[in-house]
């Protein structure tokens, strides 16, 4: 661990207060004890199943969670603990988000104008946009398009251009691949690899572990609101014996290129999380201790894992 992470999320927790039935309210813990680290020039894929609250991680880093969210834990950028004010200053500038789709664009504003709004250098707005459009092979006239007029490929490039228009060091891509065909997925992935190769750090939040494995340097396994393991992409090679957590191993076995056996059971809902290890209700290696104690993150073989018995 000689290199300093550019972005480090420690023990993040996010909860919402919610009415369940009648006047009964509970605090829904959507993210618990989540840790990730991001290094310059690297791609970290945060992999978890759809609808499991992964996007909230991105929103927490950018400081754009809804007001009723309660957060705990720390986020460090370049070694400095981030305050909400820091996040406000950094977002868009140093940390950029690439959203899922054009639904994240103002429907009544031309895309060129939407990009220009965030460019702080007012005098050179036009040039900056022209440059970046050219770099991604977007025609000049696309600047005048409204979001609904963008084709799938154009939309992807526009969203990418938006993230790169500033000199951001960290790019967070939220589910960049759903609904895309194989060829488009590969293009998106290549774009990310290119971005990372320019020295930026990329966090790709996705449900598609296969896509993640193609380009990511590291994979963080997101489960029930926490990261069970952070592994190097290479650990997935072969029979996966280098992997640390039982769940990751099971996921690896479930890949089509391997045994293709689906992992039995489902993730617990936020309101019925196990008391101890979050994976304890599905774990084949579970012991009594797992049911009462939440395992801390430990380092094994240049990766991190939350399991009492990981080897």
């Amino acid at each position: 661990m000689d290199k300093q992470p550019i972005l480090q999320v420690n023990n993040l927790g996010i909860s919402f207060s919610q009415y369940t039935k009648g006047l009964h309210r509970v605090d829904l813990k959507v993210i618990t004890n989540l840790d990730v680290e991001l290094y310059e020039g690297e791609i970290l894929a945060v992999v978890g199943s759809s609808g499991s609250g992964k996007s909230l991680l991105a929103h927490a880093i950018l400081g754009i969670l809804p007001d009723n969210a309660v957060t705990e834990g720390e986020i460090y950028y370049n070694g400095k603990l981030l305050t909400p004010e820091d996040m406000e200053r950094l977002r868009g500038d140093e940390i950029a988000l690439i959203p899922q789709s054009v639904n994240y664009l103002d429907p009544l504003q031309q895309v060129g104008k939407q990009i220009k709004i965030t460019i702080k250098d007012h005098e050179h707005q036009d040039e900056v946009v022209s440059d970046i459009f050219q770099r991604y092979g977007l025609k000049k006239e696309v600047e005048n398009y409204y979001p609904f007029q963008l084709s799938g490929g154009m939309a992807r490039k526009v969203l990418l251009a938006m993230a790169l228009v500033s000199d951001s060091k960290v790019i967070i891509a939220d589910e960049p691949t759903p609904g895309l065909d194989e060829a488009s997925i590969n293009e998106v992935l290549k774009d990310f690899r290119d971005i990372a190769d320019t020295g930026r750090a990329v966090m790709m939040i996705t449900h598609d572990i296969q896509a993640a494995l193609k380009i990511a340097d590291k994979i963080a396994i997101f489960y029930a609101g926490t990261t069970l393991e952070t592994a190097n992409a290479a650990d997935f090679e072969g029979d996966g014996s280098r992997l640390r957590h039982p769940y990751t191993k099971a996921l690896n076995r479930a890949l089509p290129s391997n045994e293709f056996v689906p992992v039995a059971g489902t993730q617990p809902l936020p309101n019925e999380l196990p008391h101890g290890c979050l994976y304890s209700d599905r774990c084949p290696k579970k012991t009594k201790k797992c049911e009462v104690e939440r395992p801390r993150l430990k380092e094994i073989r240049d990766g991190k894992v939350r399991c009492l018995y990981a080897t």
């Binding site: 661990m1 023990n11 309210r25 309660v70 834990g73 720390e74 993150l297």
Partner: peptide, 23 residues
Amino acid sequence: MMEQVERIQVPQGPLFKFGVREK
């Protein structure tokens, strides 16, 4: 190396809020 400090960054609201439905 990883210290497990439970530090609360954003102050947590009161445990019982007089919510919309009660009102």
